[in-house]
């Protein structure tokens, strides 16, 4: 815990992007998430921490309705994105996922070229009118993901041929290309080495100027390094949610303190 540094960063806005109230998730008969209330702010990185199986990934997958793809999952409560309930029957989950992008734990580029990987989202949603416009979207997305300089000469090489860290940044570029408003990241660095991790973390900090970023992580140091808000989950409950500095230095709940200091989890 000695290398943990709390970085206070300027946060420009405080407007609420996503407001979740009393969210419950059941997988068949198991109650995976119990009455969670969380506000995700624009321009912030919000970190979800907690031991394995605590419900943090489950909650993340509620935010873009990826739980819909699991037949046994049942979600109740309300999640408002810009004051609109995303579980309202009128909302098309497919459109929602274009607005709420997701980066997964393991880099999962499609077995296509680097260019086609990034262009996938814009093509599906018809976001561009010409080839030149698409080229531009691909370029800016790769630049946002800090990958442009490394791949600009081999855009048509397969995406699976990149290194692990590059693949993960490619996946970030792919998610960014649909110009989402929120970016969900499910342990994006757990399959990466320390150098690639540092690059992705730096990237996350830059991305929060454009999107609300939510990151699930097992590494408390990472949560402390990249986030402004931290939520601690334990056994399906949201134990504590607050400023990252406060959570790590002065937790209110004894469970948070014992997790932070390494006694549980």
């Amino acid at each position: 815990m000695n290398d943990m540094r709390i970085v206070e960063r300027l946060v420009s806005t405080n407007e609420i992007k996503i407001a979740a109230r009393d969210v419950n998730v059941h997988y068949g008969s198991s109650h995976a998430l119990k009455g969670v209330d969380v506000d995700i702010l624009n321009g912030h990185v919000t970190a979800f921490i907690g031991p394995s199986g605590c419900g943090k990934s489950t909650f993340l997958r509620c935010l873009n309705r990826m739980n819909d793809t699991i037949p046994s999952a049942k979600v109740t409560g309300s999640i408002l994105l810009d004051d609109e309930d995303i579980y309202d029957p009128k909302v098309d989950p497919v459109r929602l996922r274009a607005k709420v992008g997701m980066v997964f734990q393991k880099p999962n580029p499609f077995p296509k070229s680097i260019y086609d990987n990034v262009a996938y989202g814009p093509k599906i949603h018809g976001l561009t009118r010409s080839r030149a416009e698409l080229d531009e979207v691909v370029e800016t997305s790769l630049k946002k993901a800090a990958l442009w300089n490394e791949v600009k000469d081999r855009l048509h090489a397969p995406g699976t041929g990149l290194s692990g860290g590059q693949q993960q940044r490619l996946c970030i570029a792919r998610a960014v290309a649909t110009s989402p408003e929120v970016l969900l990241m499910d342990e994006p660095c757990s399959a990466l080495d320390p150098i690639a991790t540092a690059q992705v973390e730096e990237l996350i900090d830059e991305l929060r100027t454009q999107f609300a970023v939510v990151i699930v992580t097992h590494s408390m140091q990472q949560a402390a390094r990249v986030s402004q808000k931290t939520a601690f989950f334990h056994m399906g409950n949201l134990v504590e949610f607050g400023e990252t500095g406060q959570i790590f230095t002065n937790p209110h709940d004894p469970r948070t303190e014992s997790y932070i200091s390494g006694k549980i989890g």
Binding site: N64, M66, T69, V94, R95, L96, R97, A98, K99, G101, M102, F104, K106, N108, P109, F110, P111, K112, Y120, G121, I124, H125, C171, R174, A175, T178
Partner: peptide, 25 residues
């Protein structure tokens, strides 16, 4: 499964996912 998740997570429908990702793979 990660291929399906990636495509669905980008807002593709199941049939788009099948046509553009799963069948080519």
């Amino acid at each position: 499964q990660s291929m399906r998740d990636a495509s669905l997570g980008l807002g593709a429908t199941p049939s788009e996912t099948i046509r553009q990702v799963i069948v080519p793979a």
